[in-house]
Design a protein around this nucleic acid. Structure first.
Length: 194
DNA sequence: ATATGGATGCAA
DNA sequence: TGCATCCATATT
């Protein structure tokens, strides 16, 4: 399992290193897992696209807190986005998880998405930050959940020798700082959002 | 192209 | 208190 030390590093490095890792979400029969194929770094003061880009607010406060916790927010009134807080406490930063390949619990995830598990493709299940949260069953109540505690609701597992080549591109869907190359993807994955 | 619709932050 | 904005998605 990835520890707080992993997340307490430079946000761009963490985002890069998360590609190919697996997220395990939920407990018991509702637990599901997926491999990260797309993630974006959101920095602090120097990043206008970040919720922490204009300093501390009640919402961005969590990005200034200790690393290795979930930052979940709602966007457009109907979708949730899952981030992991990075950097040492006091320094804001987070990584938005944008796409997963289903690893286990594919049927549960497909059903949560309103899809036919037998007919849908992997890229229909968790490609896109909103779809991903729906597939994992994540909503606002997950905001602040620590990663990888005992009996975790949420954990991240590194996969050694995953053979993933990581590519770096500009971020998707933002209106500010559109040129900064803070998006990381698993090269050639069919489950990317772009 | 367009409808969807809650939380947030800032101006007033 | 009002309102523009928002790291999206499904549907036409």
């Amino acid at each position: 399992m990835l520890t707080p030390e992993f997340f307490a590093r430079d946000t761009l490095t963490v985002a890069h290193d998360l590609i190919g890792a697996e997220i395990i979400a939920g407990t018991g029969p509702d637990a599901v897992a997926g491999r990260i194929v797309e993630a974006e770094a959101y920095l602090g003061q120097a990043d206008p696209a970040s919720h922490a880009g204009r300093g501390w607010t009640p919402r961005s406060a969590i990005m200034f807190g200790p690393p290795a916790v979930a930052y979940v927010y709602m966007i457009y009134g109907m979708h949730h986005c899952l981030n992991f807080v990075t950097e040492p406490e006091g320094t804001p930063g987070a990584v938005l998880i944008r796409a997963l390949v289903p690893v286990s619990g594919r049927e549960i995830m497909a059903r949560r998405r309103g899809l036919d598990p037998a007919a849908c493709r992997d890229q229909d299940i968790a490609s896109g930050p909103g779809r991903l949260c729906q597939a994992l069953g994540i909503d606002l109540s997950w905001n602040g959940v620590p990663l990888g505690s005992s009996a975790p609701r949420l954990a991240v597992r590194s996969v050694s020798g995953n053979g993933v080549r990581v590519e770096r591109t500009p971020r998707i869907g933002i209106r500010k700082a559109v040129d900064l190359p803070y998006r990381f993807v698993a090269a050639g994955s069919p489950c990317l959002t772009d």
